[in-house]
Measured scan of single mutants.
Amino acid sequence: VLKALERTRQLDIPDEKTMPVLMKLLEEAGGNWSYIKLDNYTALVDAIYSVED
């Protein structure tokens, strides 16, 4: 979780936006981090930006 938060902080995305999206992605992935961690957490960042749209 810390590495995911560090990555999104680099992009000026607050933890308050990151955590709900991260928890949803983890739930959808059955707790499997490998998809979320791919390409420096690209799936997480993309999911956060899609929620903002």
Rank of each mutant, 00 (worst) to 15 (best):
I13V: 06
P14S: 09
P14V: 04
P14W: 05
A43I: 11
E6Y: 07
E16T: 12
E52Y: 13
A29Q: 13
I36K: 00
L11N: 03
K37L: 15
I48L: 09
Y49M: 15
E6W: 06
V21H: 05
V21W: 05
D15C: 06
A47V: 06
N40T: 02
T8Y: 05
W33K: 01
V51D: 12
K3V: 07
L38G: 09
G31P: 04
D12M: 14
I48F: 04
Y49N: 12
V1G: 05
A43N: 09
W33T: 01
L22I: 06
E6F: 08
A4M: 02
K24H: 10
K24P: 00
L38D: 11
K24M: 10
L11E: 06
Y41G: 01
L11Q: 04
K3F: 01
I48C: 01
A43L: 14
D53W: 10
T18V: 15
R9L: 05
L38V: 10
L11I: 05
I13S: 02
Y49H: 12
A47P: 01
L5P: 03
E27R: 08
A29S: 15
V51H: 11
D46K: 14
P14E: 07
Q10L: 12
E27T: 10
P14R: 06
T42I: 11
L2F: 08
D15T: 01
E6N: 07
E27F: 10
V21I: 13
T18R: 02
K37Q: 15
D46M: 13
P14C: 06
G30M: 09
Y41F: 10
T18I: 05
P14Y: 04
N32W: 05
Q10H: 08
A29L: 12
K24C: 08
Y35V: 13
Q10T: 07
G31H: 09
N32F: 05
A43G: 07
D53P: 14
K17W: 09
V51C: 10
L26T: 00
R7V: 12
A47L: 07
N32H: 07
L22E: 00
K17P: 01
S50W: 09
Y35W: 13
A29C: 14
K24A: 10
L22M: 05
L5G: 04
V45K: 02
T42A: 15
L26V: 05
V45F: 05
L44D: 04
A47H: 06
I36V: 08
V1R: 06
E52I: 14
V1M: 12
V1W: 15
K17A: 09
N40R: 06
K37H: 10
Y35Q: 13
K3C: 14
A4G: 04
A29R: 09
T8I: 07
K37W: 13
Y41H: 01
A47Q: 06
L22N: 00
N40I: 04
Q10K: 10
D12G: 15
E16N: 11
N32E: 10
K17C: 10
K17N: 07
T8A: 07
E52Q: 13
I36E: 02
T42N: 14
A4T: 03
V21E: 03
Y41R: 00
I13N: 02
R7F: 12
I36Q: 01
K24Y: 07
E16W: 15
D53A: 15
E52T: 13
